[in-house]
Design a protein around this nucleic acid. Structure first.
Lengths: 147, 147
DNA sequence: GCATAAATTTAAGCCCGCTTAATCAAACAG
DNA sequence: CTGTTTGATTAAGCGGGCTTAAATTTATGC
């Protein structure tokens, strides 16, 4: 088997195994907080990329500005988001996670990665070293390919 | 830095980078097919675990049997799922991907992993070998931890 | 064989996300 | 200053997913 095909297959196998678990767990966690997945995704986005404007939400999620506005409105009501006027353009709004929103996401991340930590514990030290190195390679490559 | 912490961090970094891209792409693809995420998830589940009964859907997605039934009904109507009587218990139903459903998922997977293949191409042969080995270790570990 | 339990389905109703269309306020171009 | 464009919001309406409750069919225990 050619190398490139082989690694491609290992990557897919891992991603398949991981994605299923991961998406289910996000869903569960979101549900346990009373948030819907779209709402949760917005919080995740803010956590990942930092504060942004309303239009960025609408673009990133590929929905109309109206939809974005309604989605954000609910999160503001729930106290997870802060929506302030953009000083440089008073038509625009600036969105950021509230402390409570940030706490929620941190907690979700912690829960979500717990099984991965358990998984790592089952590896021998040599395996851990190999895995660690490989992941750094991948992450570096992913950053350089980032759009 | 202790090994276990280090690998845990590399794993998280990679997963963060990967998950965001991945979930967005699944969403896009699902939308392009006219399916909703829950519908799509059911197809994915079937693809991943093979045929199963109605009750398994309801358990796995943590929804009532009624909800599962309605969800499946739409997928059957759309021609992506086949629903047959379980010969060993005529109350139960057996669900499996139709050829068209299988094709859909294969295509989604192919599109979804394209960027990963591009990513792999940027690695040197030695890096590819390391990554490949590490991913096999992880996948094996994930399977043995599987609930 | 009969009462009970189990696997699904159907129907009614709720909330949510999304869209389009209309509205409003601020920015901008002449 | 005025007409236009831009960013956001609101309202109305559609379809989806979900739940509960009721109905149907098939298995099971005694």
């Amino acid at each position: 088997m050619p190398k490139t095909l082989q690694i491609s297959q290992s990557l897919r196998a891992w991603m398949d195994a991981f994605m299923h678990r991961s998406m289910r767990e996000w869903g569960r966690f979101a549900k346990s907080t009373g948030l819907t997945m779209p709402q949760f995704s917005v919080l995740m986005q803010l956590h990942h990329k930092g504060p942004c404007g309303m239009s960025e939400i609408s673009e990133r999620f590929e929905v109309t500005p109206a939809a974005a506005s309604q989605l954000v409105e609910k999160l503001v009501q729930a106290g997870y988001l802060e929506r302030t006027e953009d000083p440089s353009d008073r038509r625009a709004k600036l969105l950021s996670l509230s402390p409570s929103g940030a706490r929620l996401i941190e907690q979700g991340i912690a829960e979500r990665y717990r099984w991965m930590d358990d998984l790592i514990k089952t590896l021998s030290p040599e395996e851990q070293a190999k895995v660690s190195e490989a992941l750094e390679i991948l992450t570096r490559a992913a950053q350089s390919v980032e759009t």
